[in-house]
Amino acid sequence: MNIWLVMLLGGLITFGMRLSFIYLLGRFEVPETMRRALRFVPPAVLSAIVFPEVLMPSGKFDFGLDNHRFLAGIVAVLAAWWTKNTLLTILAGMAALLILQLVL
């Protein structure tokens, strides 16, 4: 599939989802089950992306100390926990990875 078609479809779907309930309200109530499910979407999807990136950067499980991304990921989790700031979290994780790459 052409990248432009991919972007167009992805953009239309995204716009459709953003418009969905704004458009539908008044016609239907938001089903309770769906509202409950949607709450778990961000943590589930984001974790599903993060875990393999950090724990298996070479395509295999790697929990060892030589896995710099695993250690830098822990630093980022701590930074996110303390600061709740996106920029500081990125900076802390990136700095940790760069230092680990230089030192270890």
């Binding site: 943590p43 993060v50 991304r69 990921g73 980022a76 996110a80 990136m94």
Partner: peptide, 11 residues
């Protein structure tokens, strides 16, 4: 690595 880091910051 900024991608997983950004998602960590969001999650």
């Amino acid at each position: 690595f900024a991608l997983p880091l950004t998602f960590i910051a969001m999650v």
